[in-house]
Simulated scan of single mutants.
Amino acid sequence: MTATGPAARTHHAPVAVVDAVDVVTVGESMVTFAPSVPGRLADVPSFHRGIGGAESNVACVLAAAGHAVRWVSRVGADGFGDHLVEAIGAYGVDTSAVRRDPARPTGIYFRTAGDRATDAHEVAYYRAGSAASAMTTENMDLAAIRSGRVLHLSGITPALSAGCLGLTADLTARTRAAHPLGPLVSFDVNHRPGLWPRPDDARVLLDLARGADLVFVGEDEAEDAWGITGGPDAIRAALPEPATLVVKRGADGAIAYDEHGARHTEPAPRVDVVAAVGAGDAFAAGYLSGVLRGLPVRARLRHGHLMAAAALTAPGDLAAPPGRAHADRLADLDDTAWGTLHLGPGWTAGGAVEEVRTS
């Protein structure tokens, strides 16, 4: 992939019976219940309803940033399914290819207010046997799935069932082989240890990533999932196939490797973290936005960092992204100014000087 974006490849939007869009995401979204007060799940008296799902998060952020996005999935023929479709659609995402399953429920989960990265956090998933876990190549709208310039997938979907694994495999390497003029395939590893109870099982994510054009992976999750301990260069050595590999390093920034063998490093701005959730999905959305706009790699990485900062400085999985002009202005800062950028809660609201501090 070059600095001129997907259009520079020989791939073009496929001919389909559905309208073409910028990005299609495929995966499970669930109704989330966040506690009204801190405490153990056993003690929380009530919960606030929301939505959560890696692929739908990416779709919502991209739509809010002005891109045409389609989310494809399955939900139950129930009120929770209605809520998901309506809530995701309210972000401007096309949900017309979401199918309803009368025999299976929509997945839900409950969580506590504690930090999700610590043992103090509790989460209770009710997703086994969900409508989304029944996704297969045979029961999904493949024309809708292949209708974007970019197809974005994650490593959560293949963990849900054998059918979901087969669908993801069909949409990575097999999509490129059978549909060479189809979308650029983006894959976020999104390793969730709880979904892969046997450590060796997660190595399937490595095979799936090898079939994608663009891969996002955290340095820490590459170690957890695959035992790769040599840093970003070792991860690239294990994943030479994708044209672009983006290794996320948290507060230390990110590194992008391109098909020409170049290595692009970009530090992350300093962020006052409110909630460490949704940042990875937002980063992927920011980077993909840069791809769609034909921005150079440095700008793509910076837009990824800015979208992640928007998520980190707001509660919940989804946050309003900065306006495009605001984000462009920050992404265009010189290296010195970018290196001193300090973002806190409210920085996305309007770009006032006091909302974007230097230190």
Rank of each mutant, 00 (worst) to 15 (best):
D201E: 15
E241D: 15
P105C: 07
T95D: 10
R111V: 03
W226G: 02
S56M: 00
A87K: 10
S56N: 02
A3K: 04
R99C: 04
A113V: 06
V21N: 03
T2C: 11
A279R: 06
E354Q: 14
R70C: 00
T313K: 04
F216R: 09
H260E: 14
T32M: 12
W347T: 03
G114M: 13
S56G: 12
V37M: 13
V17N: 13
G231L: 04
G250N: 00
A173H: 08
H48S: 14
S147C: 08
E241C: 01
R324W: 09
A113Q: 10
A325G: 11
Y109K: 09
M135T: 00
T112E: 04
L208I: 03
V85K: 04
L306H: 01
A120K: 06
N139P: 09
A212L: 07
V189M: 07
A279K: 06
E241A: 13
D233E: 11
Y287I: 03
T340I: 08
A124M: 13
R357T: 13
V21W: 00
V185A: 03
H121F: 12
R300H: 01
A202P: 14
R127H: 06
A65Q: 14
T2N: 15
R149L: 08
P158H: 08
P38Q: 09
G92P: 12
F110G: 02
F216L: 14
G66N: 03
A144R: 06
G5T: 02
T358W: 14
G182H: 01
D201A: 11
F33C: 02
T10G: 14
V69D: 05
A20R: 13
I156G: 00
A319K: 01
S56H: 05
G79D: 10
D82F: 06
S147P: 09
G218A: 05
T118Y: 01
P345I: 07
I255H: 00
A309G: 01
L214E: 01
P315H: 12
L84V: 09
R100W: 03
V18L: 10
L330K: 03
P345S: 10
A42I: 06
A256V: 03
A243P: 00
V31I: 11
A337Q: 13
G148N: 08
V353A: 15
